[in-house]
């Protein structure tokens, strides 16, 4: 195939763009020996940060699934006035700068904040605790799950939901036995995206939760903290985050592809109806 000038331009631009995306990742591993990597990720700072990240993200993801799934199902299956507005509302954290989200959370849940007094009276302190990390991660990561979940529920054939109802299943049972399993792949992909975002959370967390080792210092915060003191440690934690993120991205791509291939026979054999 002969390369036209335009084709050459496209290939050149694409090669530059993709190389630019890869270079920082390559650099992290190039600047790091295997020994430095192992020392770094087994250091107290890294292990504490890993534990804090795992704990807070796990709780955040549980909260996102627990509240995000019904929200997404409601928005996907009901038509009502103001629905478009609510869907936009779900996306607010996507366009809000994380630092703004952090200051907002502080203004709401901080000791002197809008709701802080109420919590303080109940003896609950939120800002600069692990709870704050959970709230920050939940706030910024939730739209990734909810948006994908809305699309996944919307893709469920309404006739299948109707069939379930006429077969005697109430709305709850229909959700559990028809909508949820059929949207499962999309929900999984959405959760993987939310988790990836949660892992990288920085701005809102540092504003609202601070960066205290073993309490609120997540891996992303630890990279920032270490970078002043020990560049190799920062690189090692960075490398760890790259590996985890790559794995999550891989999962996010894999789940829908796997769902598609396992259900593709349905479209292939779909009745044509026109014969």
């Amino acid at each position: 195939m002969k390369l036209t000038p335009f084709g050459a331009f496209l290939s050149g631009a694409a090669a530059l763009a993709l190389a630019f995306l890869l270079i920082p990742i390559v650099a992290i591993f190039a600047e790091l020996t295997f020994g430095e990597f192992v020392d770094g990720v087994t250091s107290d700072v890294a292990l504490d940060a890993l534990r804090v990240t795992a704990e807070t993200n796990l709780i955040s993801m549980a909260l996102i699934v627990l509240f995000g799934t019904p929200t997404a199902y409601l928005l996907a299956t009901r038509r009502f006035r103001g629905r478009a507005l609510l869907i936009t509302l779900v996306e607010i954290p996507l366009v809000l700068p994380p630092a703004v989200a952090g200051i907002g959370l502080l203004a709401a849940f901080g000791r002197l904040g809008l709701l802080g007094g109420t919590f303080e009276a109940a003896g609950i302190e939120i800002a600069f605790t692990k709870v704050a990390v959970v709230l920050a991660v939940t706030y910024v990561a939730s739209p990734f799950y909810v948006r994908t979940a809305i699309a996944a529920f919307e893709a469920v054939d309404p006739d299948l939901v109707a069939a379930s109802r006429t077969l005697g299943a109430g709305p709850g049972r229909t959700f559990a036995r028809v909508a949820l399993p059929l949207a499962g792949g999309g929900l999984g992909a959405g959760l993987a995206l939310a988790f990836a975002r949660g892992l990288g959370e920085f701005g809102a967390t540092i504003m609202f939760a601070g960066s205290f080792q073993g309490i609120t210092q997540t891996l992303s915060l630890a990279v920032y903290q270490a970078f002043d003191v020990d560049f190799d440690l920062a690189l090692a934690i960075g490398a760890l985050l790259v590996l985890v993120s790559a794995f999550v991205l891989f999962l996010a791509k894999l789940i829908p592809a796997w769902r598609r291939s396992s259900s593709s026979s349905i479209t292939a054999f779909a009745p044509s109806g026109s014969h």
Partner: peptide
Amino acid sequence: ERRRVGLVFQEYALFP
């Protein structure tokens, strides 16, 4: 779910 009907959909709507 409280009407005793059996509805057969045009494209059958079997649960895939």
